[in-house]
Measured scan of single mutants.
Amino acid sequence: MAAGGDHGSPDSYRSPLASRYASPEMCFVFSDRYKFRTWRQLWLWLAEAEQTLGLPITDEQIQEMKSNLENIDFKMAAEEEKRLRHDVMAHVHTFGHCCPKAAGIIHLGATSCYVGDNTDLIILRNALDLLLPKLARVISRLADFAKERASLPTLGFTHFQPAQLTTVGKRCCLWIQDLCMDLQNLKRVRDDLRFRGVKGTTGTQASFLQLFEGDDHKVEQLDKMVTEKAGFKRAFIITGQTYTRKVDIEVLSVLASLGASVHKICTDIRLLANLKEMEEPFEKQQIGSSAMPYKRNPMRSERCCSLARHLMTLVMDPLQTASVQWFERTLDDSANRRICLAEAFLTADTILNTLQNISEGLVVYPKVIERRIRQELPFMATENIIMAMVKAGGSRQDCHEKIRVLSQQAASVVKQEGGDNDLIERIQVDAYFSPIHSQLDHLLDPSSFTGRASQQVQRFLEEEVYPLLKPYESVMKVKAELCL
């Protein structure tokens, strides 16, 4: 049975990233139509530049190519590739079939990587351009969430054990800070992308030097003109047959890092959902379990974690691919890159769409948070109580021993009897502590235990987050809708 299948058929496997999760716009960027249309555009740009620099290419040939950029006979191309065992030459023939007058000058002087690699770089750039505003929107939604809850005390956790208090907004800023680093890295790697350009079979530009009869300047002009037509500021000066596969490492490393950030955020949300302090959106008709109707599973956060793990592992592909590119190139890269580049971007696209949807509907339960604080705060307040007693004339050592005994009794009630923490009640009825009984409410005010959390939130948002989001103001209103 021949390899390949009808990918629109229910009898043929289709990647869930495309069929179930990723956005239509990201799927289109990695589609065959987008790819092969870009090949034709690159052939047109090459012909236009070659004509401008004096090669015998007519206006009629150029116009014929322009008129057929979208006229792609995919069936013919597939048949040609089956016959020739070469995808680029299959599309040269297919393009030439609908451009008979231009057929002889299509791909003039070029090698397969002229269309293959340059198209990949265009796709990487455009895919990054799709991700950047999506990530900015996630940051914006979380920034709104953090600002609104900047002063809401909550129990902090280290080692997932109760620690000092923080605020809900401050905790959210930990998430935002990681995503801001990801946004900066995505922008950097996007701006650092260079075009492969017009380089020939081993990167020496020998074929173009021959076409222009040894004119170095025209060869350099050709490279520059096509690079500018493709919208790049610069091209690699040095290439082998391909652009260095280190570029793929750079791009997928940034995406993998984004995956790590999203995994951490969504894990926190899942843990908070278990504590009943916070939940992701839950639709009115949504079913959490087929057997347990009360369940409210954090399905979206779980999906993000599941896909983020996949995204983090994909960076190993370009690392290994770059390491086995012998001399000017081997074909070890080809099949692998067809999979890992598309999957990385479709996965990143999915987790950003999902995280935006989550961040637009996060639900906080202040009463649950308050109750958990009441359970733990008495123990945390013991040092403040000791200091207040010393100020009232008591002995630190005597007070410490009193607190120690009462704390152990209260802990026994919590752990052995399943009761509430009654340390404060014990202190309130103990005559030894009568000098500070009137101060206990103040000493137990949760806001006095959150330090500068709310001020940190305000400063972080104003100095770091809002300036970073400013270039994306025009796209901030787009909502994230999930079908599944």
Rank of each mutant, 00 (worst) to 15 (best):
A2H: 15
S9H: 15
D11R: 13
D11Y: 09
Y13T: 13
Y13G: 13
R14T: 15
S15P: 14
S15A: 15
P16I: 15
P16M: 15
L17S: 10
S19Q: 13
Y21E: 00
V29N: 15
S31G: 10
Y34V: 06
K35T: 08
K35W: 01
F36V: 15
R37M: 14
R37A: 11
W39C: 15
R40M: 00
Q41V: 07
W43P: 00
L44G: 07
L46S: 05
A47C: 05
E48K: 05
A49S: 12
T52Y: 10
L53A: 10
L55A: 01
T58Q: 10
E60Q: 13
E60F: 10
Q61V: 08
Q63T: 10
N68P: 10
E70S: 15
D73Q: 07
D73A: 09
M76Q: 14
K82I: 13
R83Y: 13
M89N: 01
C99G: 07
A102Y: 04
A102F: 04
I105L: 10
H107D: 01
A110R: 00
D129E: 14
S140K: 14
A143E: 02
D144Y: 13
F145C: 12
A146H: 03
K147D: 10
K147R: 10
S151W: 10
L152A: 05
G156T: 02
G156W: 00
T158K: 02
T158Y: 00
P162T: 05
T167I: 04
V168T: 07
K170E: 00
K170C: 03
C173M: 02
I176K: 01
D178G: 05
L183V: 13
L183R: 03
Q184M: 11
N185Q: 13
L186A: 12
L186C: 15
R190T: 13
D191V: 08
D191H: 08
F195C: 14
G197R: 02
G200R: 02
T201V: 08
G203I: 01
S207I: 07
S207Q: 01
F208T: 04
Q210H: 11
L211S: 11
L211H: 06
E213K: 15
D216F: 06
E220P: 01
E220F: 12
Q221Y: 12
D223P: 00
M225S: 09
V226Q: 02
V226D: 00
K229R: 07
A230Q: 02
F232C: 04
F232Y: 07
F236S: 08
I238A: 09
I238P: 05
T239F: 03
R245P: 01
D248I: 03
L252G: 13
S253P: 03
S257D: 07
A260P: 07
S261Y: 01
V262G: 08
H263Q: 04
L271W: 01
L271H: 09
L272E: 08
L275T: 07
L275H: 09
E277Y: 05
E279A: 08
E280T: 03
E283C: 12
I287N: 06
S290I: 01
A291G: 02
P293C: 05
Y294E: 01
R296Y: 06
N297H: 01
N297T: 02
S301R: 00
E302Y: 01
R303K: 05
L307D: 04
A308K: 02
A308W: 03
R309E: 02
H310P: 03
L311N: 00
V324N: 10
F327A: 12
E328M: 01
T330N: 05
T330H: 02
D332L: 04
D332E: 00
S334L: 03
N336M: 07
R337T: 01
R337A: 02
I339P: 02
C340N: 15
A342M: 10
E343M: 05
E343N: 12
A348S: 09
D349C: 09
D349S: 12
I351N: 01
L352S: 07
L352V: 10
T354W: 03
L355C: 11
L355W: 07
Q356P: 02
I358W: 04
E360T: 10
V364G: 03
Y365V: 07
P366G: 05
V368K: 05
V368S: 04
I369V: 12
R374E: 05
L377C: 04
N384Y: 06
I386N: 11
M389W: 02
V390M: 10
K391R: 13
A392L: 07
R396S: 03
Q397D: 11
I403P: 01
R404P: 03
V405N: 14
S407Y: 02
Q408T: 14
Q408C: 13
A410P: 01
S412K: 14
K415N: 05
Q416W: 13
Q416R: 09
N421T: 07
L423P: 04
L423H: 05
E425F: 11
Q428S: 13
Y432N: 07
S434W: 11
S434L: 10
H442A: 15
D445G: 07
S447K: 12
R452N: 10
R452D: 01
Q456S: 07
R459P: 06
L461R: 02
E463H: 15
E464Q: 08
Y466G: 13
Y466S: 12
Y466N: 10
L469H: 02
V475C: 11
M476W: 15
M476Q: 15
E481W: 11
C483A: 13
C483F: 09
